[in-house]
Design a protein around this nucleic acid. Structure first.
Lengths: 346, 346
DNA sequence: TTGAAAGCGCTAACAC
DNA sequence: GTGTTAGCGCTTTCAA
């Protein structure tokens, strides 16, 4: 049973006062060379772990964190994020933190810009945001940075030196996982990558997934599989895909790079005698329906709830525990079939 | 921004002292009817959330928790559990909790009984244990209970009114997941369930998994699949399985109900022209090797680390935060293939 | 039955 | 530069 040391213990061992120990530990104020050495000597010998409870109890300052994410009205994918944020909020409610949620319309850059201004007005200590729109997100983050506001992102990666943390998945790898699944489902033949591309800015996502997907097949025995890409915008979606499949009767597998696999499932389930394997993303109600009737074979779970939770929690912990923010946190990529889907709703 | 009330606030609002408020909140000591009503009136009006940090800071009592689990020397499956326990330990190290780990030999009931006595001698406030041996585990738990020691279990379910919490997976469902995977891997034909049964007491595990597995196929179109069961003890394992597979040339899929899939993989990889689909359990080094060379198609991850972490954390939180212990916590059952395996080592 | 006060470990203000 | 001290919110002891 190793002893737990307090500042008082250190002060006694070093023959100085608690105040001096505090100054050494936090490098604040002036300390004589002699005292510094005496304290450091003690610190080297023991394993001092500050009592975080005592620290947070003392601190008067209230930290404020804003989370900026798309409204789930237009896309239910975002709904679980709210739960994740609230979970973090609840877990740390005894601490001096305030967490505010700001929603923008995922289909409108203007909405994002406007909401990010509102966040700026709230003058938080940190912002966690979903950088859907590349350029606008960078702008917002740089503005925050110039005001001394820390920025973290989740859901999709974005390179900027002003970003302190990223929580999400390795999308390239995610594409490889889909590829491995389709390799098993379709013994050989043609597989199409389907991008249901509602807004061009999202394309980085899809491109990474496509790259990973193709990478997997590129490293396989040649000639067994042919990989095609099919890109379609929403309005004409239904007829276009139907025609595409009719024009390509050799296609026996589809990889949908967004959460819209149910739209594809709806079309292919009309023609059950043609067996087409289908792999998509996200545990939406609509997707689960087709997963359960086996039109969709596998879904890849991006765990938006946990992403939002971890993003929020790491910012909170940075302030109240002075924890380092880890620059990148990659979540496991969960493979979902009919049987384990419900376990992921905790 | 809702105000955060403290005991001092309540005392002032009710016109009593902090001590009296504390007595009312915790129903300890004597309080006059009048004071009781005044305090309760205030409590009804406001939403009082005790500051857990302040509480833990003050408490002198040190809580002691013992964790009783199999030694990983004989089975590497248990190794991650130690990490999970240590993670919980680290997370709560600022609180007054002591967590001690006791290891027993998973192949020896005597070792379990002995170790559980050592735990009793340590006189902890709570015990978290892996109830590998049904009867002995029940005995131990009832003894703990009679001494006022709280018991939680993880890894496998066990029914007893003396058990306060269970963390683990739904093993029946886990069997269904394996079934669904093999259904996809083997279009039709014969599939064998392989129990590598080292110690009879573990059989509950395997039986549940088998039940789930068969349940899935029972509800499928009849005649497409035939399911067999093959049980083997370790020493004769290698030759027996080989003979079994030779005697049953129609078998094209295997479901190994333990973490020993690599042993099966070793045998079937000797005969690569006969393609046999293989699904097993757990991310052991040995298994991963055969997963990566695609002899094993899927592994099911039982997440022992997280099980141990959650089991430990829920007991700790019960003491320091006075949180309710949830009776049952079922973890998601992760499906692992070549591509997402490494993500699960965080 | 109740209030007052000490003190958990830490931080920050203040005095020397 | 450095030691002392007050106080965060809570629990617990001690008088009254």
């Amino acid at each position: 049973m190793e002893k737990i040391y307090t500042i008082k213990d250190i002060a006694e061992l070093a023959g100085v006062s608690k105040g001096t120990v505090d100054r050494v530990l936090h490098k604040r104020g002036k300390v004589s060379q002699d005292a510094l050495e005496r304290v450091n000597e003690v610190l080297d010998k023991i394993d001092y772990q500050p009592n975080l409870m005592a620290r947070s109890l003392k601190k008067k300052q209230i930290y404020s964190i804003c989370v900026l994410l798309p409204d789930s009205k237009n896309d239910p994918y975002w709904q679980p994020c709210i739960d994740g944020i609230n979970e973090a909020k609840k877990e740390f409610k005894s601490f001096n933190v305030k967490v505010e949620i700001f929603l923008f319309d995922a289909t409108s850059t203007a909405s994002f810009v406007e909401t990010s201004k509102a966040v700026l007005n709230a003058a938080p200590d940190a912002v966690l945001l979903v950088p859907l729109f590349h350029k606008e997100a960078i702008d917002a983050i740089e503005t925050y940075n110039s005001k001394g506001i820390i920025s973290g992102i989740f859901n999709n990666q974005l390179k900027s030196s002003a970003i302190k943390s990223f929580v999400g998945q390795d999308l390239f790898q995610s594409g490889r996982i889909a590829a491995r699944l389709l390799e098993l489902l379709v013994q050989k033949g043609t597989i199409a990558i389907v991008h249901i591309d509602e807004d061009y800015e999202n394309a980085v996502h899809m491109q990474e997934k496509e790259k990973g997907f193709r990478d997997y097949f590129d490293n396989l025995e040649k000639g067994k599989f042919e990989i095609k890409t099919f890109k379609v915008k929403h309005p004409q979606f239904k007829t276009t895909l139907k025609e595409y499949l009719e024009a390509n009767p050799n296609i026996s597998g589809l990889f949908v790079t967004t959460s819209k696999a149910y739209q594809v499932a709806k079309i292919i389930s009309k023609n059950p005698e043609r067996k087409i394997a289908l792999v998509g993303y996200d545990l939406l109600e609509n997707n689960l329906e087709y997963l359960n009737n086996k039109t969709i074979d596998f879904l890849i779970h991006q765990n938006p709830k946990r992403q939002a939770y971890l993003g929020t929690a790491s910012l909170i912990e940075h302030f109240i525990f002075e924890k380092e923010i880890s620059a990148e946190k990659l979540l496991p990529i969960d493979i979902i079939n009919t049987e384990n889907a419900k376990d992921y709703f905790l």
